[in-house]
């Protein structure tokens, strides 16, 4: 049986999908990009530019499409979806990598103990009502004790024991505890100040508060283990002094204020921070902008209409 006729007719009907190049074409399927590293043929480039470019592009596109059609696919309503590999070309990122979230105290503990995280369902099965109810929130299971019409009271309860209030207080305390732990986690994530630093901070606050009564804490109730404060003195100057002494005291105060080590009022760091250029231009030109100011200074007649406000990006 001679199949050459069949083959010839097949070849006439369909064109080839193969691309032959000296250097094989590089395909980066992840970015749908193809790079043809063969040198450009000068003859065909000069003969007919558009045709040359189109044939180059066709070869490249053919190679890319061939690579894409060979990828594993999944079906979708719009046709087959090709699963793309990771790109081989590396492009710079537009933003820095996201910082990993610092683990909470519980997460660290769980990691140390090997406790797996499991997500709790938002709904809970209620045996009595035989239906799924919210764990919290509207008609939540956690408020069941507060809304039920009858509650068992313990034998030794006070006369004014309110079981609804007790249940509610307990729930509110749990919420408050959670919130406190959240804040502590946040503070820990913010910046880990050392234990020593925190201790110093607390002692400084305590010292300030102890010395803030008129008697500098002399008549305050002492706590167990509380140390005696050092360097706290209450000294009253006489109301009447000689002029000389008063002058000396005032001068000493002034020189202290003037000295560099204990400057009471800090001056701005440098000249450029003082002058707000934008504000100054606006003020000097009465809100018409720097261009108008320049025109006025040059003595030309000022045009109306185009205000010279710049810098904000006119869209």
């Amino acid at each position: 049986m001679d199949v050459s006729n069949l083959l010839a007719s097949h070849a006439a009907k369909y064109q080839t999908t193969d691309v032959d190049k000296e250097t094989p074409i590089e395909v980066d399927a992840g970015f749908l990009t193809v790079t043809d590293l063969n040198p450009i043929d000068e003859e065909s480039y000069k003969a007919n530019l558009e045709e040359h470019l189109q044939s180059l592009a066709r070869d490249g596109a053919q190679a890319l499409v061939a690579a894409l059609f060979k990828l594993p696919t999944t079906q979708s309503p719009d046709g087959p979806l090709a699963q793309l590999p990771k790109p081989t070309t590396t492009l710079p990122r537009a933003k820095p990598l996201p910082k990993p979230k610092p683990p909470t105290k519980w997460e660290r503990f769980a990691a140390a103990k090997g406790i797996q995280k499991k997500v709790r369902d938002r709904k809970e099965w209620d045996e009595e009502r035989q239906e799924w109810v919210n764990r919290w929130g509207r008609d939540g299971k956690n408020k069941q004790k507060e809304v039920q019409w009858i509650t068992e009271v313990p034998l030794n309860a006070d006369a004014d024991f309110d079981p609804v209030k007790a249940a509610r207080d307990e729930r509110k305390a749990r919420v408050a505890k959670n919130e406190r732990q959240r804040l502590q986690n946040e503070a820990r994530a913010q910046g880990s100040t050392s234990r020593e630093e925190r201790k110093q901070d607390i002692e400084r606050t305590l010292a300030t508060s102890r010395g803030s009564t008129a008697s500098m804490g002399r008549f305050d109730r002492k706590l167990e283990g509380e140390k005696k404060m050092k360097g706290v003195k209450r000294k009253f100057e006489p109301t009447e002094r000689s002029l000389d002494q008063e002058k000396q005291a005032s001068l000493a105060l002034l020189s202290k204020m003037d000295s560099d080590s204990k400057k009471m009022r800090r001056e701005p760091a440098s000249e450029e921070n003082v002058l707000n250029v934008r504000k100054a231009v606006r003020f000097a030109s009465k809100g018409r902008g720097g261009l108008a100011l320049g025109r006025d200074a040059a003595g030309g007649k000022s045009r109306s209409g185009r205000g010279g406000r710049g810098g904000k990006g006119r869209r």
Binding site: L32, P39, I40, L53, V65, L68, S76, P80, L81
Partner: peptide, 25 residues
């Protein structure tokens, strides 16, 4: 033109090519 990492593409939706080529070196 293309700087987004995607994990899949619809093969029927490949519609156009942008070709960048140079004059002879």
């Amino acid at each position: 033109f293309n700087g987004e990492v995607i994990d899949s593409i619809c093969l029927a939706g490949l519609e156009h090519v942008i070709s960048v080529s140079l004059s002879p070196t």
